[in-house]
Structures are given as C-alpha cells and as structure tokens.
Design a binder for these strands. Structure first.
Lengths: 201, 201
DNA sequence: CTTAGCCATTCCACTTGTGGCATGCATCGT
DNA sequence: ACGATGCATGCCACAAGTGGAATGGCTAAG
C-alpha cells in the first residue's frame, strides 16, 4: 500500500512507465523510500492494474523492448485521494517517511486538509517528546562478551542529544509551516507564500 | 536480518523473553524500528533458535503462561558481531535507522571500527549533498485532476529546506562525534568523554 | 571498437512484515 | 465488582519487499 500510494501520486500528476517511476523514486522521491527495486515497482504496477487503479498503453520502440505507459484511472484517483486525505496515524519514528510522503502530494489537498494532517503529526510528536524526553535512558546491563561501557555511554549520550535536537528542529519547522498556512490570505499565490515562509523563519 | 540484528544485540547484553524484547523495541529501541508486532518478534526468535543463534530456558510462572528466557549462543554472537562490524552500505534516506542501529550497539565495537563506520556514513552523505543540493527540484507537470500548484510549491520548498537543514545538522553532529573519538585519549573514561562531547558542541 | 550506462520489462524464490485472533493470570485503580 | 493494562506466548493468512538473473537495443565516451 505504501509504495502503491507513491506510484499513484506520481501517476496522478503525469503518465509514466515503470522505469520512469523507478527513476522518480531514485531522484525526486529519494526521501520517500530507500533503495526500491525495479521488480517491486513493476509488480505493484501489475497489481494496481488488476485492481483497476491504473491502465497502460504500449509504446513501440523499434527494436528495443516495448515501453508501457501507465496512467491513473478515476478509480485509482479515488483510492489515492482516500489514502492521502484519510486517517493518518503517526509511526513511532518521526523520521519515517509516512508524513513526508503525504506532504509530497500536498497539491492534491485543500489547505484545511493539510492543516489537519499537520496538527495530527504535531500533537503526536509533542506528546512523544513529553513522554520520553526526561526519561531514564539507562539500560539494565549484564553483558557477557566484550562490551566497552565507556564507548557505549558516549555514543548513547550523543544519540540521545542528536535525536532530541533533531525532533526539536523538526517540530519548530513544522510549526513554521503551520503558521504560514494559517496566516496566508486565502488566495495567496506561490511567490507570496514563499516570501511568507522566508519571513517566518 | 534487520530485526534479528537488533534482537541479537539486545540478547548480547542480557537474556530476555520475547515480551522483554518487544518492550525494548517500544521504549529504548523506539528509534530503531517503528511499530513492531509481537508476532514478528516471536517468529524471529523461533527462526534464530532454529539457526542456533539463541537458546531458551523455560521459567514456570505459577498459573500463568510459562515464560521463555532467550540467551545468545557463541554462534549467535559471531553472527551479530559480523553484522555489526561487517560492511555497511548507507541507505538512500539518511533518516533510515540502519546507521543508528549500529550505533546503538557501539559498545561492542572498538573505537577504530566505530570510526570506520562513521567515516563511511559521512562520506556517503556528503556525496549525496554535493549531488543533490542545488539540483533542479521542478517536476514535469501534466496534472489532470485538481492540483493546487501554489500549495504544492510552498510545501515542496518547505520540505526541501527542512530536509537540507536536517541533513546539515546531522552531518555537523556526526562530525562532532568523530572529532571527540579522534581526540579523546586512548584510555578516557565515560565522564571525561561526556565532557569532551559537551565542549565540542 | 569496446565498454559502460541508460532504457525497459519480466520472472522467480525467498524472506519479512502486517494485522488480527486466541488464551489466561495478576494487578491496580475506580 | 469491573475493566483496563501488563505479562506472556502462539498461530494464521496474507501483503510486501529483497536480490538476482535474463534479455536486448541505444548512445556516448574513451
């Protein structure tokens, strides 16, 4: 479902071949998914076609393998939009791409839907910070093999600080986006929005 | 292999039941993996036992379900250490837990091994930044359905900036850790290391 | 001329992960 | 007294992802 959502999102913007989609995942979409296999893309495409979410037409390429251009169907569009604007439950790791994937297709949302999504993410992460930030991080030890406690402590401390800083920065940035979306006039165009974003930092 | 590596790492520090391991994944290990299912933990444990990487002993708990305490075998320790210090290829997304998972078990590494790992990560990410930072981010458009270009542009710009800032901060923090590891005297103890870390910020 | 890389798809055998169900006792708060 | 939560395991069907091989033409650089 997750790869499929991405593929549907791309196809909702323009028809593509399997190869194109793989290229998207390796370039523009590289933060949405790590190391996606060709085979996985083609298999998803096949499954989606069987479900009636996409259809393909064949492009002959003299000599070479025929290329199949996939386009999204109305049904596929419905499925995609249902996923995009449907319920979102934040994964444990804020670094996971679930939220970012939805953002990548923000253009298909209304400003209200986008704000709702952001609010869900924000409350979930704030709650997480509140629950864990000052929690004891020591772990029970009883190590048999060679284990460098000093090294482990250093790295654990660094990891915790790095994680805390990362999530704090993340929350701050998200709040900024939220602010811009709330403050911007209803009919603001892209250049003005970008200016607002710059000022809000 | 990935869940198994984590479980082996935990078991390398102390014996645990399946339930304990799941709890670890939900608390201390929450940044290593999102939403792990109980069934997945028990299945991995079963498979690892079949491979001879772990063994279990049964704890009777009057009335309640017996608890199985798993401990790592020598073979399991070898497998774990091979994974930990073996070749690491950075995933596309720097937010993926692969690197962090290894760091979580830094205590089982020597300082040199840890530094090698950090150097691999650092070069890979620097290279990524160099390749993509100033790349054109515009995507070909040909959207049929309702698509708010202005909203999409705003969010895309925000995402890019957020991503850039996140990876920059990440690189900086990693460099700091690297510095501390390089500069610290061979026999430095945890409190001194933490002081160095604090000063290095 | 040759090698490398891009374009393009498909198949296959696995391995992993998801989500839910079933069981059953103990403890703690209301 | 009741319900939630924690402890503890296991089974199942199904969905998704991994990693590699096979095929074959095109183009550009060395």
């Amino acid at each position: 479902m997750k790869l499929e959502s991405i593929l549907l999102g791309v196809l909702a913007r323009h028809p593509s071949t399997g190869y194109d989609l793989k290229k998207y995942l390796d370039t523009h979409g590289r933060f949405l998914r790590s190391n996606t296999q060709m085979s996985q893309v083609y298999r998803s495409l096949g499954k989606m076609e069987a479900s009636g979410w996409v259809i393909h037409t064949v492009q002959q390429r003299a000599g070479a393998t025929d290329a199949k251009t996939y386009r999204i169907t109305d049904e596929g569009m419905t499925v995609f939009l249902d996923w995009l604007t449907g319920p979102y439950s934040p994964p444990t790791r804020f670094q996971d791409p679930d939220f970012g994937t939805r953002l990548a297709f923000a253009g298909f949302m209304t400003r209200e839907q986008l704000l709702r999504l952001i609010d869900i993410e924000l409350t979930a992460r704030h709650e997480q910070v509140a629950r864990y930030r000052f929690r004891d991080r020591r772990e029970a030890v009883d190590t048999s093999a060679a284990f460098d406690e000093d090294l482990a402590t250093l790295v654990a401390e660094w990891s915790h600080e790095a994680g805390a800083q990362a999530i704090d920065a993340y929350l701050e940035r998200l709040e900024t986006l939220r602010r811009v979306l709330l403050d911007a006039p209803e009919n603001a165009k892209a250049p003005d929005l970008l200016l607002l974003l710059r000022d809000a930092r």
